[in-house]
Write a protein that binds this DNA or RNA. Sequence first.
DNA 1: CGCGGGGTTGATTGGATTCAATAGGCGTGG
DNA 2: CCACGCCTATTGAATCCAATCAACCCCGCG
Lengths: 253, 253
Amino acid sequence: VPTRLISVSGTLLGNDPVERFVHRLAMFEPLEPEARDALRRALTRGPLTGAMQELNGEALQDVTILLSGWLCHFRLLDNGRRQITSILVPGDIIDYGFLTSNSTELQCVATTPSQLGRIRSRQFAELGVQFPSIMRATLKAAATEAAIGREQIISLGVRSATERLSHLLCELWYRLSAVGLINAENSYDLPMTQAELGAVLGLSTVHVNRTIQVLRKTGAISMQSGKVWISDLKKLTSLAGFDPSYLSATPSN
Amino acid sequence: VPTRLISVSGTLLGNDPVERFVHRLAMFEPLEPEARDALRRALTRGPLTGAMQELNGEALQDVTILLSGWLCHFRLLDNGRRQITSILVPGDIIDYGFLTSNSTELQCVATTPSQLGRIRSRQFAELGVQFPSIMRATLKAAATEAAIGREQIISLGVRSATERLSHLLCELWYRLSAVGLINAENSYDLPMTQAELGAVLGLSTVHVNRTIQVLRKTGAISMQSGKVWISDLKKLTSLAGFDPSYLSATPSN
DNA sequence: CGCGGGGTTGATTGGATTCAATAGGCGTGG
DNA sequence: CCACGCCTATTGAATCCAATCAACCCCGCG
């Protein structure tokens, strides 16, 4: 695998973050070359945020895209308990509030330094009219995020700790492979602490740790210093009861 | 309160299910009288489903609306465990798959006999073009459903059993009052068994029962045979840590 | 009249939290 | 350059919330 090009389902995807985003949108709905060009032109580089930095609402007025880095939406309750409601990986749209021109009240933190991109909402609206395919792709992306949320509900509601964790690792494997972020040895960066994983999975830090050890012992994965090796995706999938169809990212060029 | 008219935030809402739906959409975005008329004309009566009956996917090709009765989206895992991922009350759109012309794979059961309404997706698309307010209202309704899902994630993740239940009861109070389904003595019908509530809240049937008793003892509510009396909404709200802003149903017009 | 579903209650079990203590890594500042 | 502190990971022990198991009641219904 060459340094600058990563193979994704037979096509070559440059590791340029902008290209990554365009490619990902096109997985939801085929985009004409002109639509892609228009997207590239409309997308401007936004701020670079540091790790642990919170994004304020005003930063999300426009269509904001995570070009590189990881973000989490979360909610902090009075009693200090925190729940992460979604994980965002490169190529994801951070918030779909622009579809309803509603100012969202989502809290968001970066778990790594992250590069944001933005498209002015007015300009995006014009794009959507000019290229209906862009609007369709965006709506499908939003629907996919909703499906991911549904899976999290199911995890928190009826899945065991090991099922939750392995399901999350499976999901991330599929989502990251869609944007060319799976390494050659079938590993990927997972820049989240065990405490943060607990806040996603509804488990205590200690129990996350023990659950990771259970998974390690099955031989399906290994984890170390922010990296996950998927040594047996098939086994991991069956441990999780994972069915990737909800991600609905059919690789269409 | 007259029999056929129910007061909702100062306006009078007929208990005609079609009117209820139009009124509810208009709460998300003001709708011109012509837009309302067009909606009424486009909406046709769909099938009447029995309780415990499952809706199959083909029934959801079009824009399907719950005119009366209650539905639940759910997921059944291999091990027999079931998680309800959303509760639908009269006036709700059952599935937003039409926005992406995706056939959804959501399973859905009726907890009471339910009357469905439908708008052909092609016709709805035309409506959306002719009346952008309808499209905006629909997108906001979808966004609200997403927000409800996020709250469920938070409940399952970090809220205690009593918080979960009281939060759900608060949410239903607000959602039902938006469609004129709160009775004079501040009660509403809750046509779900304790087992079903458990499948929503991620609790066992037995524990739901005990949690109800805890709430009863606080004096905030009473429950009996499918009916809930909210005797102290303020106390219930504080027990739940409930903030209704996510429902974003600003009573407009 | 017997049956099944829903609700209620008690006793027991168990998965996960909490408390507590240790070790390793990393950055900062003396 | 090393010491210190903080964050993260790990492990053991005690505790607890909720699940499970098991009965029982009530009621509508065939």
